[in-house]
Structure formats: structure tokens, C-alpha cells
Amino acid sequence: MELPARTFRVTRADLIRYAGASGDFNPIHWSDRTATKVGLPGVIAHGMFTMALVGRAVAEWAGAPDAIVDYNVRFTRPVVVPDDDEGTEIEVTAKVREVTEDGLTRLDVTAVCGGEKVLSQARATVRTAR
């Protein structure tokens, strides 16, 4: 079963706000000068910001903000966020891999930005809605 796709727009302002909320002030997430110095095309989103957006999608699919019992991802490609008003977009899709007898649903999740997968082996286990 395929779950409805969700698209998240990500701008520089979102990264600054996430940096403040999470305490992750690594300059590759806000300084083009630093990002290009370490070989990146420009400022990139925090991997944990992408993981948080995908977690939101999963919780919304599950129908409860506290439904996720296990959640893991591998970060495969950076999400480059240009310094403009549009930013970039991350598209999240998922399909149900398994529904267990003890009321858990296992999802395989895909997150794509600019036509490339930015996560691999992204999996979430959620409690089936009460």
C-alpha cells in the first residue's frame, strides 16, 4: 500500500530556525563560505531537519503525534538550499511493508530532492491508530 505523497518546501530561513531550535549551529547549514570551503555546492539542510520533516509525514500518516516507536534513516545526499525565496523541495513517499499481529505497521520511506534520493534505508515502525 502506497501512502499519499507529501512535499515540504525548505528555505534558508527554515534552516536558521531549525539551528536555533535544535542547537546544531554547524556553519555548513548557514554559511556558503564555510560550505563551499569543505567542498559542498553551498549551504545544505541539517540531515536531522530532513529526518524531522519525514517524521512529521510519518506521524501524520499514522494519525497520531506519538505513534512512532522506531525510526531510522541513512543520509545519502545533501539537500542543497539556495539563498532565494523558493529554497528547495523534499518529496516524501512511503509504502507499508508489513503489518504485525501486535498492532505495529512498518513503513519504507523515500525522500527525494531535485530528483535524487536524499535518504536510503529509511524505515519507521508506528503503532496502528487507536
Binding site: 530556525r17 531549525y18 536555533g20 531550535a21 520533516l53 512529521r56 506521524a59 501524520e60 503525534p65 506519538d66
Partner: peptide, 22 residues
Amino acid sequence: EFASAIGAADPAHHDPAAARAL
């Protein structure tokens, strides 16, 4: 603050009464 930064609008992240209902 964290929920707002990731756009998580579910009331259970913001409203104690909504969280208590869960």
C-alpha cells in the same frame, strides 16, 4: 519551539490539554 521549527502543528505538541487527551 522545536515543533514549530519543523512545522509540526499537531495540538499535542503545543497544547497540554490535547496531550493529556492522548
